[in-house]
Amino acid sequence: MVTDALTLIGQVLGCLGLVLALVGAVNDLIAAIGFVRFKNFYLRLHALTVGVIGGTFYPLIGLGTYALFCIAPPLGYYVAGVSYVTAFFVLITAPAGSHAIARGAHRAGYRPEPAREDKLAKDREEGVME
């Protein structure tokens, strides 16, 4: 009885994970559209974030949950483990990567245009920021 209920909960969670994966795929497509529509590197970074968090992190969690509950072990555990570890790494490394590339681009002379204000460029011209 209890195991039946647990199996049912697992099935429901797995299906929710699948739906999350589908939503993530749609997010990724929207991010790709954003890449096409935005004309500026710094704006595209926001589309990248949609693609990374909405389009990679959440689908990986969803697919991992699906694999955990709906695929027979040990293979299901294997896929779930790979998905979760990948999701963890994406969550901590992707923002650092975007930050690094944004900083490098700003230092290499790519300016956000149009922009209402660019305090970083101003501060670096004034010499307060190295």
């Binding site: 710094y42 974030t49 909405g54 901590i92 923002p95 975007s98 930050h99 900083r103 970083l120 920021m129």
Partner: peptide
């Protein structure tokens, strides 16, 4: 803080 800011779409830590 920086990763939370960058991970929310709409804001990116540049420097």
């Amino acid at each position: 803080i920086a990763n939370s800011i960058t991970n929310t779409p709409g804001t990116v830590v540049v420097d």
